[in-house]
């Protein structure tokens, strides 16, 4: 073990943390909107809505993220029609390709969590709310949504950790986040084990902090730990 090398590279690798966190948070926020839309489509009761949503989730959950990233980044850019479209300024950038891929992925996985949360809201509450004269939208915002959030939060915490881990793949499309910087250092020092140990520890700490925040949020929302 070259401890001095590990110490020196630590300070270089931490410079990748902002990009990792940025990509993860933007994708997570965009992903929530996508997830809610997909979840509502799936439980809509209208097959024209629920079937596409079902196949979307099946497609994303059934294929590796790495492949999805290659598809979005290299696969789409092969076509001149795409390179001349208004989408190109976005699809041209590895940064946005990374965010699009991660958003689609977390959107599909979280839609299942949210769907589970919505379905867990007892029909009695919704009927009671109707009896009290609340509109459908008010019922959703005041009754369904808060209960869903409480139900879905523990699973969603897991999803956040999966997102941080998944973001390491975007180094493959030239982005210099934690893993990208680690790979660059390895290409100069030829010490993969030492450098990846440093990078791995950084991910571990980030995920540990996320777990603490999720636990805090769960406690504030009065969710009992289901262990």
């Amino acid at each position: 073990m070259r401890l001095e090398l590990m110490y020196e590279s630590f300070f270089k690798i931490v410079e990748g943390i902002p990009l990792t966190l940025q990509v993860v948070s933007i994708s997570t926020i965009l992903g929530i909107f996508l997830a809610v839309a997909v979840a509502l489509m799936r439980i809509s009761g209208n097959r024209l809505m629920s079937l596409p949503a079902y196949y979307f989730v099946y497609l994303i959950r059934g294929t590796p993220l790495l492949l999805q990233l290659y598809f979005v980044y290299y696969g789409l850019s092969q076509f001149e029609a795409i390179r001349e479209s208004i989408l190109w300024p976005i699809l041209k950038e590895p940064y946005w390709c990374g965010i699009i891929t991660l958003t689609i992925s977390t959107g599909a996985y979280s839609s299942e969590i949210i769907r589970g949360g919505i379905l867990s809201v007892s029909k009695n509450y919704i009927e009671a709310s109707g009896a009290l004269g609340l509109s459908q939208i008010k019922t959703f915002l005041l009754i369904t949504l808060p209960i869903t959030v409480r139900q879905a939060l523990p699973a969603y915490g897991n999803e956040l950790i999966l997102m941080v881990k998944a973001s390491s793949l975007i180094s493959i499309v030239t982005l210099m986040e934690i893993t990208g910087i680690a790979r660059t250092i390895i290409s100069k020092t030829y010490a993969p084990v030492e450098i990846f140990l440093v990078a791995g520890s950084i991910y571990l700490v980030i995920n540990f902090i996320i777990v603490m925040f999720v636990n805090l949020a769960e406690r504030r929302l009065g969710i009992e730990k289901a262990t």
């Binding site: 290299y74 850019s77 092969q78 390179r83 041209k92 590895p94 493959i172 030239t174 660059t184």
Partner: peptide, 18 residues
């Protein structure tokens, strides 16, 4: 600088104009 894992992938990105 854009650093690629393989020449093949860099070729694709040059052709795509990235």
């Amino acid at each position: 600088l854009k650093v690629y894992p393989t020449q093949d992938e860099m070729n694709l990105d040059l052709a795509a104009g990235r």
